[in-house]
Amino acid sequence: MRRSEDWGRLGGIGIAVLAAACVLLFLGSRLLGAAAGPEAEIITTLKQAEHDGVSLPVPGAQAPLVSRKLQYARISVSVAPDGQRAEAFATLDFEGALGATTVSTAGVEAVAFTRASGRWKPTSSVAPRLVAVVAALEARRQALAQGRPEALSRLAGPGGDGGAGRAWAEVAPLSKRRLTVQAWYARLERDEVTVTEHYRLEGDLPARPVDTRGERPLLLVREGDQFLFSPGLM
């Protein structure tokens, strides 16, 4: 009888230890983050994204931007005086795809964070500038393919003549046009982005069919949270 009671007590202790371990496992990351401060928790979040990979929604695109490689470096964190907002500045090397289009970028990224329920979380995504650039590139591709010069004009930055750009002059005469982009290779600076676009343009002219492959340089400038195309390189 005594042995049964001893085993019962040992079983109770084991259950208590197991329960405590589960609680520590659940709260461990929060406790460590709180102890190390916001900088460490935010950097850990970005490094976890590197490890896990990302699938980022892109406004206006049918497919998400999916990473094959994601690497942050030279990360610095600035925390707002209220202790509830922060921004991480870093260089970002990204390789991935938007549907069938290869996307490869390098350069500056700035990720806003908000503290909620005791944890720091990205306000929008772990790569908001990258997403904004890809959204602009995809919007331009769709406008060209669908024959919407007015949409192209809205994507142009200040200093243009209100036109739709040189690419539209090439695309406009074609019937049954189809524009596909094989790749965008981009360099993100603080206020502008240089892009090399590899594309294929298909369609019909009155006298002959057209099937052209090529590459063109593009330049985007930052306007607040969005990127617009330099009218001279659109």
Rank of each mutant, 00 (worst) to 15 (best):
A127N: 10
S124Y: 05
E202P: 01
A156H: 00
D211S: 12
E109M: 01
T194S: 15
W184S: 09
H198L: 06
A183S: 13
P173S: 02
T123A: 15
A97C: 15
A88N: 00
V210I: 15
G99N: 09
G99W: 04
V181K: 03
D211G: 13
E170H: 05
L152H: 09
F89C: 02
L220R: 07
A145C: 10
E170N: 06
F94W: 07
G165M: 05
T101M: 06
P158S: 08
G163W: 02
F94V: 08
Q142W: 10
L179K: 08
V133D: 02
A139K: 07
V134N: 06
A169K: 13
G159C: 12
P173H: 00
A112P: 04
E170P: 01
A136T: 06
T114R: 06
A183H: 11
D204E: 15
T123H: 14
V171Y: 00
W168Y: 11
V195Y: 02
A169N: 13
G96F: 02
F113W: 02
L144E: 00
T105I: 11
E150F: 15
D161V: 04
G147K: 08
F113P: 00
P158V: 05
T123Y: 15
G160W: 01
E109H: 00
K121Y: 11
Y185M: 14
L144C: 04
L218T: 05
E189K: 12
V181S: 11
A86T: 03
T123G: 14
W168D: 07
A156K: 01
V108D: 09
V111K: 01
T102S: 11
G118H: 07
A172G: 14
V108K: 09
L92T: 01
A136F: 02
G203Q: 09
R187N: 15
T105F: 06
L130A: 05
R178C: 06
P209Y: 06
R208W: 04
L92G: 00
D93I: 03
Y185D: 15
A106E: 09
A172H: 12
T212D: 14
F94Y: 08
R190N: 15
Q182S: 14
R115I: 07
P206C: 04
Y185L: 15
L201Q: 08
R213Q: 12
E215Q: 14
K121R: 12
L179M: 11
S125Y: 02
L220E: 01
L218N: 05
L137I: 08
V181Y: 04
V181R: 04
G163A: 13
L152I: 14
V126C: 14
R154N: 13
T91R: 07
R177D: 11
P209I: 08
V103R: 00
T196R: 10
A135N: 12
R178P: 07
V193N: 04
L174H: 00
V193F: 03
L92P: 00
G160H: 04
R208D: 08
R190A: 14
H198W: 07
G214N: 12
A116D: 04
S117P: 05
P217D: 03
